[in-house]
Amino acid sequence: MKRLLPELATEHRGSEAEGCGEPFGMRRFAGLVGRRQALGAIVGGTAAIAALTAVPIPAISSSPNMPEWLAALIAVRLGSTEFVEGRVVLEMPDRADTGLSVPMTVSVPDSPMTDADHVRSIHVVTTRNPQPLVTDYYFTPASGLARVSQRIRLARTQQVYCFALMSDGTSWMTARHVSVALGACADEIFLPDAKQPVDGGTS
């Protein structure tokens, strides 16, 4: 088995937890397999993706099974675990050509935004980005309308969750599945003499 240069392998070992690849160990795995095998894996993976995307996938508007770590993260950051699906609307394309810049609009269209009843904050979290938090928006009654548009990065195909906290104490959520053709970290591949394992991006 032909291995990558050992110094490269050690370099990756220190960075696996925060690299752009899969959070747990995928980068190390990619650093240790031979080039030929890695290529085979990529080709195989691409074929698998092609096979998957060839089947028409129904748009998944929400996920009933939120990962446990996400529920824990939300409980710590937002101090609430009682999220009800509804009210908050997340508009994103079902499929994105590139994960570098995916348009996103979050809103709570039916909130009157009065002193008594307004949206306090909206939080966007992803499931498979190296860092799950995306943005936190804070509103006041003077915002008039709880609707924000921005462009975000997605490292790969994944679920995007959106949580809204209201001034009356209720909490709402929604989720959306976004397919990403080329992940936000894919520019590593295009570097000349790329020293990084080609694991980011598609999966």
Binding site: T135, Y137, Y138, A142, S143, R151, I152, R153
Partner: peptide, 11 residues
């Protein structure tokens, strides 16, 4: 009137 915390996933 409006505030936002941005993390690394902002383009």
């Amino acid at each position: 009137v409006f505030g936002a915390d941005w993390h690394v996933a902002v383009s």
